[in-house]
Each structure stands twice: as C-alpha cells, then as structure tokens.
Amino acid sequence: MRPFEEIVVAHGPAVLRICRSLVGPVDAEDAWSETFLAALRAYPELDPGVPVEAWLVTIARNKAVDLHRARGRSPVPLAELPEAPQSALEPAGRDHELWDRLAGLPPKQLRCVVYHYIGGLRYAEIAEAVGGSEAAARRAAADGINALRRTYTTDETKAGASQ
C-alpha cells in the first residue's frame, strides 16, 4: 500500500479545488482537512481496486454535506445527472460494483465524471484541472456516464436496490 503522504501530495490540490467548488472559499480548507483526516482513518482498510482520487472526492462531498448541515444551509448544489439514478453516482456506500465500474473507466473519463457529478465542478474548471478544452471535458464526462450506464444500470434489480 502506498504511504498516505503520497496520497496527500498527489491528490491534495485536486481535492482542495473540489472543496472550493462544494463549500466555497471560506470553508474549503476546513472541508479539505476533514476529508483527509477521514481518509487517513479509513485508508488502511481501503480496497486496492478503488480509484483513490474518486474515493477522496466522495469523502469531500460527504464532508461538504456535513458542513452545510452544520451551517444550516441549503444542500450542496450539484449538477443534475441526466436519466441515470443519482444514487448510482454516490459511491460513498459499499457499492463494490460501482467502484469496479468507475475504476474500469479510462482515467480522463473517470476524473471528469467524478469531478463533475460528485465534486460539482463546472466543465470549465474541470478543463483547467485535467487539461484540454471545456468541450473535451464535457465529452469525456458524457462518454464516462454512458459507459457506466451501459454496464452498471443494466442490472435493474441492483439499480432498484440501491435507491
């Protein structure tokens, strides 16, 4: 397993960007700290197949929800996910199949899907983070969602059970 320090160095900046998007600049650093502390706690048990950055973004999203609740604000505004069930993209639970599917996406699609649908980044911000144009980021996210929808939501029983 990689030392946690490597995880902080590799993904710290991206997670801070996500935190700014989820809770705004004032609370972003608190959200970042809560995210990495929770991640450090859970890290030894992390399934090696889980894509680390997607996992961190999911934790950040949960921490953002907690912060909003604590501040008595409205829920985290997020991009609407067309057609696919919203719960399918909240892999905070122990949905191993979804993690597997996510891990199977090409890296750029994975990042675009996770940054947009879980992290709430706009495509312009995603383009800044992953490189390339805004249109390319949008396309990669769409391709990723389509791939997920093909593989994941074909099992109606599972989709129903996770709602």
């Binding site: 320090e5 490597e6 902080v8 160095v9 710290g12 900046p13 801070l16 650093e29 970042w32 700290s33 990495f36 502390l37 450090l40």
Partner: peptide, 19 residues
C-alpha cells in the same frame, strides 16, 4: 515530498497535528 505552495504546506501541517 512537500508542496511548494504555501496553502498546501499549511494544510499539510494542520493535517499532521490533527492526525
């Protein structure tokens, strides 16, 4: 393995203390 950006240095130090 330390970030050069001051924000990240500060966040890292705070993370170490909390940990």
């Amino acid at each position: 393995m330390i970030q050069t950006e001051p924000t990240h240095e500060r966040l890292h130090r705070q993370l170490v203390s909390r940990a």
